[in-house]
């Protein structure tokens, strides 16, 4: 699936998006896999309360299932307007 990062999450990881092969069944499982990769991922995902997630471009929870999902995005709370 495609994993996208925005704002300071993008800056900490150093990528706007990447293709990820995962065996995780939920967003939380995907986060655990990513955190285990490298310190920059660990730094980005250190505080999940500071993060929001979208699954296939809809806001979702960390326990959202990943079956059939094409795109997951991680970002800080939004500051539009």
């Amino acid at each position: 699936m495609e994993v996208l990062y925005f704002a300071w999450v993008r800056e900490r990881i150093g990528l706007p998006r990447e293709r990820v092969e995962t065996v995780a069944t939920t967003v939380a499982g995907l986060v655990e896999e990513l955190r285990a990769r490298e310190p920059r991922y660990e730094a980005a995902f250190a505080d999940l309360k500071a993060l929001r997630v979208a699954v296939d471009q809809k806001l979702a929870d960390f326990d959202a299932p990943l079956a059939g999902v094409r795109e997951v995005a991680f970002f800080p709370p939004m500051t539009g307007g």
């Binding site: 925005f6 704002a7 300071w8 979208a54 806001l59 995005a73 970002f75 800080p76 709370p77 939004m78 500051t79 539009g80 307007g81």
Partner: peptide
């Protein structure tokens, strides 16, 4: 303000900072 995916970053002479929600 809090449900559409936009993020603001402020730039100043001494650096830049993301605006916190």
């Amino acid at each position: 303000k809090s449900r559409a995916p936009f993020w603001k970053k402020e730039y100043r002479a001494d650096g830049s900072e993301w605006v916190a929600a």
